[in-house]
Amino acid sequence: MTIPTALDPAAALKAAMPELTFDVDEFRGETSIIVPREQIVAVARYFRDTPGLVYNFLSDISSVDFYEQYGGYGDRPGRYAVAYHLLSMLYRRRLRLKVYLPEDDPVVDTVLPVWPGANWFEREIWDLMGIEFRGHPDRRRLMMPDDWEGHPLRRDYPLGYETVMFSFNADEIMKHKPFADE
């Protein structure tokens, strides 16, 4: 069996989808390809199935929130990003696909048809970051209780520090611990 020679992912994508506009970011030997969110499923399927690329394994889906307390998210195209980490077991290399999502409409298509393993990654991101995956069959929360409000991993969600107890605020804090002095 001969293995087709490895292709450069960005060049191959340019040749295969000439109408697609995308950016390429190289950092410390990692390649990120930033694609429009409408095209993510087509691009993912292309990278999975094309000989010479064969990114057959979905390692991880992560999400980032670029919100800053003062100054918004700068010159990035959107507040949120979803990063898909693909792995090609044949060529032993990794690739990151990235989509940016606007603040008022954080919706992206699900890649569930391409990799069934994306199921829980997407549910977790929906639960913790509030990014909706269109077409995902399971809309229940994964990590937080069902009646939880908000999406905790967003940068504008408070971490929820409990204040340190001193004698002046001891009564206030002990109110939350009704069983502590029994």
Binding site: S59, D60, S62, V64, D65, W120
Partner: peptide
């Protein structure tokens, strides 16, 4: 800004 652990048990 973000630390995400891809953990095998989760998968």
């Amino acid at each position: 800004r973000r630390v995400h652990l891809r953990t095998p048990s989760f998968v």
